[in-house]
Design a binder for these strands. Structure first.
Length: 371
DNA sequence: GAAAAGGACATAT
DNA sequence: ATATGTCCTTTTC
Protein backbone atom coordinates (compact mmCIF):
# COMPACT_ATOMS: atom_id res chain seq x y z
CA UNK A 1 0.00 0.00 0.00
CA UNK A 2 3.13 2.06 0.00
CA UNK A 3 2.10 2.85 -3.55
CA UNK A 4 -0.52 5.28 -2.44
CA UNK A 5 2.23 7.54 -1.21
CA UNK A 6 5.34 6.53 -3.01
CA UNK A 7 4.36 4.61 -6.01
CA UNK A 8 3.70 7.45 -8.37
CA UNK A 9 6.00 9.53 -10.44
CA UNK A 10 5.17 12.79 -8.81
CA UNK A 11 6.34 13.13 -5.23
CA UNK A 12 3.96 15.02 -2.99
CA UNK A 13 6.49 17.79 -2.65
CA UNK A 14 6.55 18.76 -6.27
CA UNK A 15 2.81 18.72 -6.35
CA UNK A 16 2.73 21.11 -3.47
CA UNK A 17 5.31 23.32 -5.03
CA UNK A 18 3.48 23.57 -8.28
CA UNK A 19 0.40 24.45 -6.32
CA UNK A 20 2.23 27.07 -4.37
CA UNK A 21 3.49 28.62 -7.54
CA UNK A 22 0.08 28.87 -9.08
CA UNK A 23 -0.58 32.44 -10.15
CA UNK A 24 -3.58 32.92 -7.92
CA UNK A 25 -4.42 31.12 -4.72
CA UNK A 26 -5.69 27.82 -6.01
CA UNK A 27 -7.42 27.04 -2.77
CA UNK A 28 -9.66 30.04 -3.15
CA UNK A 29 -11.15 29.04 -6.43
CA UNK A 30 -14.85 28.48 -6.29
CA UNK A 31 -15.92 24.87 -6.45
CA UNK A 32 -15.76 23.43 -9.92
CA UNK A 33 -18.49 21.37 -11.37
CA UNK A 34 -17.82 18.00 -12.83
CA UNK A 35 -14.67 17.31 -10.90
CA UNK A 36 -14.07 15.27 -7.85
CA UNK A 37 -15.75 16.74 -4.83
CA UNK A 38 -13.90 16.80 -1.57
CA UNK A 39 -16.03 13.89 -0.56
CA UNK A 40 -14.81 11.93 -3.54
CA UNK A 41 -11.28 12.80 -2.70
CA UNK A 42 -11.76 11.87 0.88
CA UNK A 43 -13.40 8.67 -0.23
CA UNK A 44 -10.36 7.89 -2.26
CA UNK A 45 -8.13 8.71 0.61
CA UNK A 46 -10.02 6.76 3.19
CA UNK A 47 -10.61 4.04 0.66
CA UNK A 48 -6.96 3.74 -0.14
CA UNK A 49 -6.07 3.89 3.49
CA UNK A 50 -8.51 1.20 4.41
CA UNK A 51 -7.33 -0.95 1.54
CA UNK A 52 -4.08 -1.50 3.31
CA UNK A 53 -4.70 -0.48 6.85
CA UNK A 54 -8.37 -0.98 7.27
CA UNK A 55 -8.12 -4.34 8.91
CA UNK A 56 -5.63 -3.01 11.41
CA UNK A 57 -7.25 0.22 12.35
CA UNK A 58 -10.79 -0.51 11.45
CA UNK A 59 -11.64 2.24 9.05
CA UNK A 60 -15.22 1.77 8.08
CA UNK A 61 -17.77 2.98 5.62
CA UNK A 62 -18.98 4.96 8.57
CA UNK A 63 -15.79 6.96 8.78
CA UNK A 64 -16.34 7.87 5.21
CA UNK A 65 -19.82 9.07 5.78
CA UNK A 66 -18.53 11.17 8.62
CA UNK A 67 -15.92 12.77 6.46
CA UNK A 68 -18.66 13.58 4.07
CA UNK A 69 -20.46 15.47 6.73
CA UNK A 70 -17.59 17.87 7.08
CA UNK A 71 -18.07 19.00 3.60
CA UNK A 72 -20.60 21.67 4.34
CA UNK A 73 -18.50 23.42 6.87
CA UNK A 74 -15.50 23.20 4.60
CA UNK A 75 -17.22 25.24 1.98
CA UNK A 76 -18.13 27.79 4.56
CA UNK A 77 -14.69 28.56 5.78
CA UNK A 78 -13.17 28.59 2.43
CA UNK A 79 -15.33 31.15 0.89
CA UNK A 80 -15.36 33.97 3.27
CA UNK A 81 -15.37 33.36 6.92
CA UNK A 82 -11.93 34.61 7.51
CA UNK A 83 -13.03 38.07 8.34
CA UNK A 84 -15.60 37.21 10.97
CA UNK A 85 -12.98 34.99 12.54
CA UNK A 86 -10.51 37.78 12.71
CA UNK A 87 -13.08 40.02 14.25
CA UNK A 88 -13.96 37.39 16.77
CA UNK A 89 -10.31 37.20 17.59
CA UNK A 90 -9.75 40.85 18.09
CA UNK A 91 -12.85 41.35 20.09
CA UNK A 92 -12.85 38.13 22.03
CA UNK A 93 -9.44 37.86 23.57
CA UNK A 94 -10.37 34.29 24.26
CA UNK A 95 -7.54 31.95 23.62
CA UNK A 96 -9.84 29.62 21.80
CA UNK A 97 -10.59 32.15 19.21
CA UNK A 98 -7.09 31.99 17.88
CA UNK A 99 -7.77 28.59 16.48
CA UNK A 100 -10.47 29.75 14.16
CA UNK A 101 -8.23 31.91 12.14
CA UNK A 102 -5.63 29.25 12.07
CA UNK A 103 -7.99 26.65 10.87
CA UNK A 104 -9.42 28.71 8.17
CA UNK A 105 -6.05 28.48 6.54
CA UNK A 106 -4.51 25.33 7.78
CA UNK A 107 -7.52 23.15 7.42
CA UNK A 108 -8.46 24.25 4.01
CA UNK A 109 -6.99 21.08 2.63
CA UNK A 110 -10.29 19.35 2.53
CA UNK A 111 -11.51 21.99 0.21
CA UNK A 112 -8.35 22.84 -1.57
CA UNK A 113 -7.61 19.27 -2.47
CA UNK A 114 -10.83 18.88 -4.27
CA UNK A 115 -10.36 22.08 -6.10
CA UNK A 116 -6.76 21.37 -6.82
CA UNK A 117 -7.52 18.14 -8.54
CA UNK A 118 -8.97 19.65 -11.69
CA UNK A 119 -6.10 22.10 -11.83
CA UNK A 120 -3.66 19.29 -11.44
CA UNK A 121 -5.31 16.79 -13.66
CA UNK A 122 -4.25 18.50 -16.86
CA UNK A 123 -0.62 19.20 -16.08
CA UNK A 124 -0.27 15.69 -14.81
CA UNK A 125 -1.78 14.20 -17.90
CA UNK A 126 0.49 16.33 -20.03
CA UNK A 127 3.53 15.19 -18.20
CA UNK A 128 2.58 11.62 -18.79
CA UNK A 129 2.09 12.06 -22.48
CA UNK A 130 5.43 13.76 -22.73
CA UNK A 131 7.10 10.79 -21.18
CA UNK A 132 5.29 8.46 -23.52
CA UNK A 133 5.27 10.20 -26.88
CA UNK A 134 3.36 7.47 -28.63
CA UNK A 135 0.39 8.18 -26.44
CA UNK A 136 -2.21 10.66 -27.61
CA UNK A 137 -2.61 13.73 -25.44
CA UNK A 138 -5.11 12.83 -22.82
CA UNK A 139 -7.06 15.98 -23.36
CA UNK A 140 -8.00 14.98 -26.84
CA UNK A 141 -8.74 11.43 -25.98
CA UNK A 142 -12.46 11.82 -26.24
CA UNK A 143 -12.50 13.36 -29.69
CA UNK A 144 -9.91 11.03 -31.05
CA UNK A 145 -11.61 7.91 -29.83
CA UNK A 146 -8.85 6.57 -27.65
CA UNK A 147 -9.30 2.92 -26.92
CA UNK A 148 -11.45 2.43 -23.85
CA UNK A 149 -8.78 0.28 -22.26
CA UNK A 150 -6.13 2.96 -22.62
CA UNK A 151 -8.54 5.54 -21.39
CA UNK A 152 -9.31 3.44 -18.37
CA UNK A 153 -5.62 3.07 -17.60
CA UNK A 154 -5.05 6.77 -17.90
CA UNK A 155 -7.99 7.40 -15.64
CA UNK A 156 -6.71 4.93 -13.12
CA UNK A 157 -3.32 6.53 -13.05
CA UNK A 158 -4.80 9.96 -12.59
CA UNK A 159 -6.82 8.62 -9.72
CA UNK A 160 -3.71 7.11 -8.18
CA UNK A 161 -1.95 10.42 -8.51
CA UNK A 162 -4.77 12.28 -6.89
CA UNK A 163 -4.88 9.73 -4.14
CA UNK A 164 -1.21 9.99 -3.52
CA UNK A 165 -1.47 13.74 -3.53
CA UNK A 166 -4.24 13.59 -0.99
CA UNK A 167 -2.25 11.30 1.25
CA UNK A 168 0.74 13.56 0.91
CA UNK A 169 -1.33 16.57 1.81
CA UNK A 170 -2.83 14.81 4.79
CA UNK A 171 0.59 13.86 6.04
CA UNK A 172 1.79 17.39 5.61
CA UNK A 173 -1.17 18.85 7.37
CA UNK A 174 -0.74 16.48 10.23
CA UNK A 175 2.89 17.46 10.38
CA UNK A 176 1.94 21.11 10.41
CA UNK A 177 -0.56 20.52 13.16
CA UNK A 178 2.06 18.67 15.17
CA UNK A 179 4.50 21.53 14.94
CA UNK A 180 1.89 24.03 15.79
CA UNK A 181 0.59 22.09 18.76
CA UNK A 182 3.96 20.67 19.68
CA UNK A 183 2.68 17.12 19.77
CA UNK A 184 3.92 13.95 18.12
CA UNK A 185 2.13 12.63 15.05
CA UNK A 186 1.50 9.30 16.71
CA UNK A 187 -1.60 9.47 18.91
CA UNK A 188 -0.30 6.54 20.91
CA UNK A 189 2.35 8.79 22.40
CA UNK A 190 0.03 11.55 23.53
CA UNK A 191 -0.38 12.42 27.17
CA UNK A 192 -3.62 13.87 28.46
CA UNK A 193 -2.51 17.38 27.62
CA UNK A 194 -1.68 16.41 24.04
CA UNK A 195 -5.07 14.76 23.71
CA UNK A 196 -6.77 17.95 24.80
CA UNK A 197 -4.77 19.99 22.33
CA UNK A 198 -5.67 17.63 19.53
CA UNK A 199 -9.32 17.76 20.50
CA UNK A 200 -9.28 21.52 20.59
CA UNK A 201 -7.61 21.63 17.22
CA UNK A 202 -9.95 19.16 15.60
CA UNK A 203 -13.04 20.70 17.10
CA UNK A 204 -12.24 24.10 15.82
CA UNK A 205 -11.04 22.79 12.52
CA UNK A 206 -14.36 21.18 11.82
CA UNK A 207 -16.54 23.48 13.81
CA UNK A 208 -17.51 20.81 16.27
CA UNK A 209 -19.00 21.54 19.66
CA UNK A 210 -16.46 21.53 22.43
CA UNK A 211 -16.11 18.03 23.80
CA UNK A 212 -12.79 18.22 25.57
CA UNK A 213 -14.28 17.61 28.97
CA UNK A 214 -15.73 14.32 27.87
CA UNK A 215 -12.24 13.09 27.08
CA UNK A 216 -10.40 14.53 30.05
CA UNK A 217 -7.86 12.32 31.77
CA UNK A 218 -7.51 10.18 28.65
CA UNK A 219 -4.12 9.53 27.12
CA UNK A 220 -3.58 8.96 23.44
CA UNK A 221 -3.32 5.26 24.12
CA UNK A 222 -6.71 5.27 25.80
CA UNK A 223 -8.13 7.19 22.92
CA UNK A 224 -6.73 4.81 20.33
CA UNK A 225 -8.19 1.86 22.16
CA UNK A 226 -11.68 3.32 22.12
CA UNK A 227 -14.27 2.17 19.64
CA UNK A 228 -16.42 4.51 17.68
CA UNK A 229 -19.28 3.57 19.96
CA UNK A 230 -17.30 4.64 23.01
CA UNK A 231 -16.50 7.93 21.34
CA UNK A 232 -20.17 8.46 20.73
CA UNK A 233 -20.99 7.67 24.31
CA UNK A 234 -18.63 10.35 25.53
CA UNK A 235 -19.71 12.85 22.93
CA UNK A 236 -23.03 12.10 21.28
CA UNK A 237 -22.78 15.04 18.88
CA UNK A 238 -19.31 14.61 17.49
CA UNK A 239 -17.82 11.45 18.92
CA UNK A 240 -18.15 9.73 15.57
CA UNK A 241 -16.41 12.54 13.75
CA UNK A 242 -13.60 12.68 16.25
CA UNK A 243 -13.19 8.95 15.96
CA UNK A 244 -12.94 9.21 12.20
CA UNK A 245 -10.31 11.90 12.45
CA UNK A 246 -8.32 9.94 14.95
CA UNK A 247 -8.42 7.08 12.48
CA UNK A 248 -6.68 9.21 9.94
CA UNK A 249 -4.01 10.24 12.39
CA UNK A 250 -3.51 6.62 13.37
CA UNK A 251 -3.16 5.64 9.73
CA UNK A 252 -0.69 8.42 9.09
CA UNK A 253 1.38 7.43 12.10
CA UNK A 254 1.39 3.87 10.93
CA UNK A 255 2.45 4.86 7.46
CA UNK A 256 5.20 6.96 8.88
CA UNK A 257 6.44 4.06 10.94
CA UNK A 258 6.36 1.78 7.93
CA UNK A 259 8.24 4.24 5.81
CA UNK A 260 10.99 4.74 8.34
CA UNK A 261 11.32 1.03 9.07
CA UNK A 262 10.91 -0.19 5.55
CA UNK A 263 12.97 0.31 2.45
CA UNK A 264 15.67 2.91 2.66
CA UNK A 265 14.72 4.49 -0.64
CA UNK A 266 14.14 8.11 0.04
CA UNK A 267 10.72 8.84 -1.26
CA UNK A 268 8.27 11.65 -1.09
CA UNK A 269 6.56 10.67 2.06
CA UNK A 270 9.78 10.02 3.86
CA UNK A 271 10.95 13.49 3.14
CA UNK A 272 7.71 14.75 4.51
CA UNK A 273 8.51 13.40 7.90
CA UNK A 274 12.24 13.75 8.05
CA UNK A 275 12.29 17.34 6.88
CA UNK A 276 14.70 19.38 8.94
CA UNK A 277 12.42 19.98 11.81
CA UNK A 278 13.38 22.06 14.74
CA UNK A 279 10.64 20.53 16.81
CA UNK A 280 12.42 17.19 16.62
CA UNK A 281 15.78 18.41 17.80
CA UNK A 282 14.82 18.22 21.44
CA UNK A 283 15.74 21.81 22.16
CA UNK A 284 12.86 24.22 22.56
CA UNK A 285 12.21 26.06 19.35
CA UNK A 286 13.56 29.56 18.98
CA UNK A 287 11.45 32.37 17.73
CA UNK A 288 13.66 32.93 14.70
CA UNK A 289 13.38 29.25 13.80
CA UNK A 290 9.66 29.38 14.15
CA UNK A 291 9.42 32.41 11.91
CA UNK A 292 11.56 30.70 9.34
CA UNK A 293 9.33 27.65 9.44
CA UNK A 294 6.29 29.77 8.78
CA UNK A 295 8.10 31.47 5.94
CA UNK A 296 8.98 28.14 4.40
CA UNK A 297 5.32 27.16 4.24
CA UNK A 298 3.84 29.95 2.16
CA UNK A 299 0.84 27.91 1.20
CA UNK A 300 -0.15 27.68 4.83
CA UNK A 301 1.09 30.96 6.23
CA UNK A 302 1.73 33.17 3.25
CA UNK A 303 -1.11 35.38 4.28
CA UNK A 304 0.34 36.20 7.68
CA UNK A 305 4.08 36.23 6.99
CA UNK A 306 6.00 36.19 3.72
CA UNK A 307 9.33 36.85 2.12
CA UNK A 308 9.90 40.22 0.56
CA UNK A 309 13.33 39.10 -0.58
CA UNK A 310 14.13 35.53 0.25
CA UNK A 311 17.75 35.78 -0.91
CA UNK A 312 18.41 38.63 1.46
CA UNK A 313 16.29 37.10 4.19
CA UNK A 314 13.92 40.04 4.27
CA UNK A 315 10.43 39.17 5.36
CA UNK A 316 7.26 40.96 6.25
CA UNK A 317 4.77 40.12 8.94
CA UNK A 318 1.47 40.73 7.21
CA UNK A 319 -0.77 39.82 10.10
CA UNK A 320 1.02 40.54 13.34
CA UNK A 321 -1.81 39.29 15.52
CA UNK A 322 -2.01 36.02 13.68
CA UNK A 323 1.71 35.36 13.80
CA UNK A 324 1.69 36.18 17.50
CA UNK A 325 -1.14 33.73 18.08
CA UNK A 326 0.70 31.02 16.21
CA UNK A 327 3.77 31.67 18.32
CA UNK A 328 1.71 31.64 21.48
CA UNK A 329 0.17 28.39 20.45
CA UNK A 330 3.54 26.89 19.74
CA UNK A 331 4.98 27.99 23.05
CA UNK A 332 1.88 27.48 25.12
CA UNK A 333 1.67 31.18 25.86
CA UNK A 334 -1.99 32.07 25.53
CA UNK A 335 -1.29 35.72 26.28
CA UNK A 336 1.25 36.15 23.49
CA UNK A 337 0.76 39.20 21.34
CA UNK A 338 2.75 41.14 18.79
CA UNK A 339 4.09 43.55 21.35
CA UNK A 340 5.80 40.72 23.18
CA UNK A 341 6.78 38.85 20.07
CA UNK A 342 8.39 41.94 18.60
CA UNK A 343 10.24 42.56 21.85
CA UNK A 344 11.74 39.12 21.44
CA UNK A 345 12.65 39.84 17.85
CA UNK A 346 14.40 43.01 19.01
CA UNK A 347 16.51 40.97 21.38
CA UNK A 348 17.92 39.38 18.24
CA UNK A 349 19.34 42.70 17.10
CA UNK A 350 22.35 42.57 19.36
CA UNK A 351 22.72 38.83 18.89
CA UNK A 352 23.03 39.31 15.17
CA UNK A 353 20.21 36.95 14.25
CA UNK A 354 17.60 39.36 12.94
CA UNK A 355 17.85 43.05 12.17
CA UNK A 356 15.84 45.77 10.60
CA UNK A 357 16.50 46.07 6.86
CA UNK A 358 18.53 49.02 5.63
CA UNK A 359 15.38 50.82 4.68
CA UNK A 360 13.34 50.28 7.79
CA UNK A 361 9.70 49.53 7.20
CA UNK A 362 6.99 48.64 9.60
CA UNK A 363 6.63 44.91 10.22
CA UNK A 364 9.60 44.16 8.00
CA UNK A 365 12.64 42.37 9.38
CA UNK A 366 15.69 40.70 7.95
CA UNK A 367 17.58 37.55 8.87
CA UNK A 368 21.22 38.50 9.25
CA UNK A 369 22.24 35.13 7.82
CA UNK A 370 19.81 34.17 5.08
CA UNK A 371 19.53 30.48 4.23
C1' DG B 1 -3.11 54.42 16.76
C1' DA B 2 -0.04 50.87 15.73
C1' DA B 3 4.78 49.86 15.45
C1' DA B 4 9.52 50.44 17.01
C1' DA B 5 12.93 50.73 20.49
C1' DG B 6 14.80 49.42 24.61
C1' DG B 7 14.88 49.23 30.02
C1' DA B 8 13.61 46.45 33.90
C1' DC B 9 12.17 42.45 36.01
C1' DA B 10 9.92 37.66 35.90
C1' DT B 11 9.86 32.97 34.44
C1' DA B 12 10.85 28.50 32.35
C1' DT B 13 14.25 25.19 31.13
C1' DA C 1 22.62 31.25 32.45
C1' DT C 2 19.86 31.69 28.34
C1' DA C 3 15.86 32.86 25.92
C1' DT C 4 12.24 34.63 26.12
C1' DG C 5 7.76 36.66 28.39
C1' DT C 6 5.74 40.58 30.56
C1' DC C 7 5.14 45.36 31.32
C1' DC C 8 6.17 49.87 30.49
C1' DT C 9 7.75 54.60 28.55
C1' DT C 10 9.09 57.20 24.78
C1' DT C 11 9.50 58.03 20.02
C1' DT C 12 8.40 57.37 15.19
C1' DC C 13 5.58 56.32 11.30
Amino acid sequence: MKIAVNGVGIPPHSVTESLTLAPSPWYQFPAHQGFASEVDVMSNLVGSLSEGYGPRIGLTENSLALMERNRGSGEQWDMGETKPNVEALERGGLYFSCFDMLFTEDAAWLVKLSEASPTLALPMARMESREEPEQCPVIDSQEQGLSPELERQVEERSLEQVQSMVVGEVLKDIETACKLLNITPDPMEWNTGNVQKWLLWTEHLYRLPHAGKAFQELTGKDLCAMSEEEFRQRSPQCGDTLHAHLDIWKSAAWMKERCSLGDSKTTGSEELWSEADSSCSGQPIHLWQFLRELLLKPHNYGRCIRWLNKEKGIFKIEDSAHVARLWGLRKNRPAMNYDKLSRSIRQYYKKGIIRKPDVSQRLVYQFVHPV
